[in-house]
Amino acid sequence: MAKTEIASVLSFEKKLVCSDVFFYGTTWHGRLTQKATPLALIEKSVRGTISNRLKSAVANDPLKLNAEVEKANLQKVDACALGEGQDTLKLQFTLKVLGQVEKPSACNNAIFKASYEKAALEYIEQEGFTELAKRYALNLANGRFFWRNRVGAEHIEVVVQVAEQTWTFNSFDYSLRNFDGVNDDIQSLAAKIAEALSSKTPFLLLNITAYAKVGQAQEVYPSEELVLDKGKGSKSKILYHVNNVAAIHSQKVGNAIRTIDTWYPDYQNAGKGVGPIAIEPYGSVTNLGVAFRNPKQKSDFYTLFDRFAQGEKLESKEQEHYVMAVLVRGGVFGQSSKE
C-alpha cells in the first residue's frame, strides 16, 4: 500500500478511561474501619523572598541587590494537608477498560481500515494484550498514580476491586523501574484487563482505593491547575478540586498507568536515569524536554504504525506492543492530505 493511501481522517478512542482521583484523610491503623474525611483546599497568604535569578547588573551590585531583596514577595497560594490526628492519605478513583482497539472511531479510507483491522486482529489473537495488561496492572499495584505523594511515604497499600473479586497490594513490593515483579495477584488482575482489551468481555470497571502513610498533618499534593491568564487571578498557585474535595486530574492518572514504555531505543542508556516513560507518539517527556522516540531513528509511533497497519512485519514484538499501546491511549493519527 502506498504511503498516500494512509487515511487522512483517522482516530481512536482511549481504552483506559480514568476518573479523577479524590483525596481523603484517615489514619493508617483505622484506614479500613474509620470513615475518611474529604480533604479541602486551604488558601494561604504568604510573604516570600525574591529568589529568582537576577540580571548580572543587579546581582553584582550590592546596593541594587539589597534594594531588590527588600521588596516583599506577597503571594496567595492553595495548599492541602491532612487534618490534625490524621497520618494517612486515602485516594479513590475508578478505571474503565474497553475493547475493540481494532476498530478506529473514524477512518475515511476503507482499504487502509481493512488492512489495519487485519493486522490488529492478528496481534490480538497472538498476544491477547497480555504484556500491556501486565504492565498496567503493575502500575496500579506499585501506586505510581500517587505521584509526588508517594515520595517519603512509610507504607502504601492499593486495593483493586471488580465485582466480587478484590486484590490488595503492598506497593513497595513492586518496582517503579521495571515490570519483572509478577506474582499470582498481578497475573490475575492482568488477565481481567487483557480480556477487556481483547473484547472477550464488554468492559471492565475497576474500583481503586489506595492508602499512603505520609505522617501526621503532612501536606499532600493534588494536581496544580494550568492558569493561562496569569496576572488576572489573585493566586499564584491554584490546586484542583471537585466540589471542594482535593483531586488529581484524570489525565495525570492515565499518564501514570500508561507509563510502560521500556522499548524506546535509549532505554538501556538514558533509561538508567529515566526508567519507563509514558506511552506517547514521540516518547515525549516534557519535564526533561526530550523526545525519546525520534523520527530520525524510525522509532516513533507514526513510522511504526504506518508499516504495521499496512501488513508489514515489524522488527520485534516490542515494537508491536508499543504501537498497540499508543492505540489504547487513543488519539488522532490521520495523515494530512497536503503531504
Score class of each variant (00 low, 15 high):
residue 25 G to H: 05
residue 36 A to D: 08
residue 325 A to S: 14
residue 211 Y to G: 09
residue 270 A to V: 15
residue 36 A to L: 02
residue 265 P to F: 12
residue 113 K to G: 07
residue 318 E to K: 14
residue 122 E to I: 07
residue 203 F to T: 02
residue 55 K to Y: 10
residue 115 S to F: 02
residue 135 R to A: 13
residue 71 K to R: 15
residue 65 L to D: 13
residue 93 F to E: 00
residue 103 K to S: 05
residue 79 A to H: 09
residue 120 A to S: 03
residue 15 K to V: 06
residue 203 F to D: 11
residue 184 D to N: 09
residue 318 E to C: 08
residue 76 K to N: 09
residue 315 E to P: 03
residue 178 N to P: 13
residue 326 V to D: 04
residue 237 K to S: 11
residue 186 I to D: 11
residue 84 E to S: 05
residue 311 G to T: 06
residue 8 S to F: 01
residue 323 V to I: 10
residue 316 S to F: 11
residue 258 R to H: 09
residue 323 V to D: 06
residue 283 G to W: 07
residue 286 T to I: 10
residue 251 Q to F: 01
residue 59 A to V: 08
residue 103 K to G: 00
residue 216 Q to A: 06
residue 90 K to E: 06
residue 46 V to E: 11
residue 286 T to K: 03
residue 265 P to K: 12
residue 290 V to L: 09
residue 292 F to W: 00
residue 115 S to P: 08
residue 36 A to T: 05
residue 210 A to K: 04
residue 16 L to D: 02
residue 53 R to D: 06
residue 41 L to Q: 07
residue 240 Y to K: 04
residue 207 N to P: 08
residue 71 K to H: 13
residue 37 T to E: 06
residue 228 L to R: 08
residue 145 F to V: 15
residue 156 I to M: 15
residue 237 K to E: 10
residue 18 C to I: 01
residue 9 V to N: 02
residue 38 P to D: 02
residue 175 S to Y: 12
residue 29 H to N: 11
residue 170 N to L: 10
residue 177 R to S: 14
residue 216 Q to L: 05
residue 26 T to N: 10
residue 6 I to W: 02
residue 212 A to H: 04
residue 269 N to I: 15
residue 144 R to C: 13
residue 72 A to M: 11
residue 304 L to Q: 11
residue 139 N to Q: 14
residue 174 Y to M: 06
residue 10 L to S: 08
residue 276 P to C: 02
residue 278 A to K: 09
residue 14 K to T: 04
residue 196 A to S: 00
residue 204 L to D: 03
residue 118 K to C: 08
residue 214 V to T: 13
residue 82 L to N: 08
residue 245 V to L: 05
residue 221 Y to E: 04
residue 213 K to D: 03
residue 91 L to R: 05
residue 198 S to L: 04
residue 84 E to A: 05
residue 266 D to E: 15
residue 212 A to I: 03
residue 211 Y to C: 07
residue 63 L to S: 13
residue 26 T to D: 10
residue 286 T to L: 02
residue 193 I to E: 15
residue 12 F to G: 01
residue 36 A to G: 04
residue 247 A to M: 07
residue 278 A to F: 02
residue 42 I to N: 12
residue 110 A to W: 00
residue 60 N to I: 13
residue 176 L to W: 14
residue 310 Q to G: 09
residue 95 L to C: 01
residue 216 Q to K: 06
residue 242 V to G: 00
residue 24 Y to Q: 03
residue 46 V to D: 07
residue 301 F to P: 09
residue 53 R to Q: 03
residue 63 L to Y: 14
residue 7 A to L: 10
residue 167 W to F: 14
residue 231 G to K: 02
residue 337 S to H: 03
residue 197 L to V: 10
residue 75 Q to H: 13
residue 250 S to P: 01
residue 284 S to H: 15
residue 39 L to Y: 12
residue 310 Q to D: 13
residue 81 A to R: 14
